[in-house]
Simulated assay, not measured.
Amino acid sequence: MKRWMLFVTLFAVAGVILSVLLILAGNSGGWVVLVMTLCIFGAVYLFVGNIKKKQPH
């Protein structure tokens, strides 16, 4: 699970950087990219957290 979270976190950071660059360039699509990136990251974070709770220790 740690590997998946690292992978998703790296993509989330790249998405946030891309969206910030788009916003600074005056492209309103940057806001859409930012919201989509954060929503996908949040969903995966909750999904992975739910899987971790169900695994036996």
Rank of each mutant, 00 (worst) to 15 (best):
M1Y: 10
W4R: 02
W4D: 06
W4T: 03
M5V: 10
L6R: 01
L6Y: 05
L6V: 07
F7V: 04
V8G: 09
V8Y: 11
T9D: 14
T9W: 13
L10G: 12
L10C: 13
L10K: 03
F11S: 02
F11E: 01
A12S: 06
A12N: 10
A12K: 01
A12C: 13
A14V: 15
A14W: 11
G15D: 07
G15M: 05
V16I: 14
V16C: 06
I17C: 14
S19N: 07
S19W: 08
V20L: 12
V20P: 15
L21V: 14
L21G: 02
L21D: 01
L21Q: 01
L22E: 00
L22R: 00
L22H: 00
I23T: 07
L24R: 12
L24G: 05
L24H: 06
G26M: 02
S28Y: 05
G30H: 14
W31R: 11
W31D: 02
W31A: 05
V33G: 10
V33M: 13
V33N: 11
V33R: 08
L34M: 04
L34G: 01
V35Y: 03
V35N: 03
M36C: 08
M36E: 05
T37L: 00
L38D: 03
C39P: 00
F41H: 06
F41D: 01
G42T: 07
A43L: 02
V44T: 11
Y45D: 00
L46A: 13
L46I: 15
L46P: 11
F47R: 10
V48D: 00
G49W: 10
G49F: 05
G49L: 07
N50C: 09
N50F: 14
N50P: 06
I51C: 12
K52R: 13
K53N: 15
K53G: 13
K54F: 12
K54S: 15
K54W: 15
K54D: 09
K54P: 01
P56D: 12
P56T: 06
P56S: 13
P56A: 15
H57T: 07
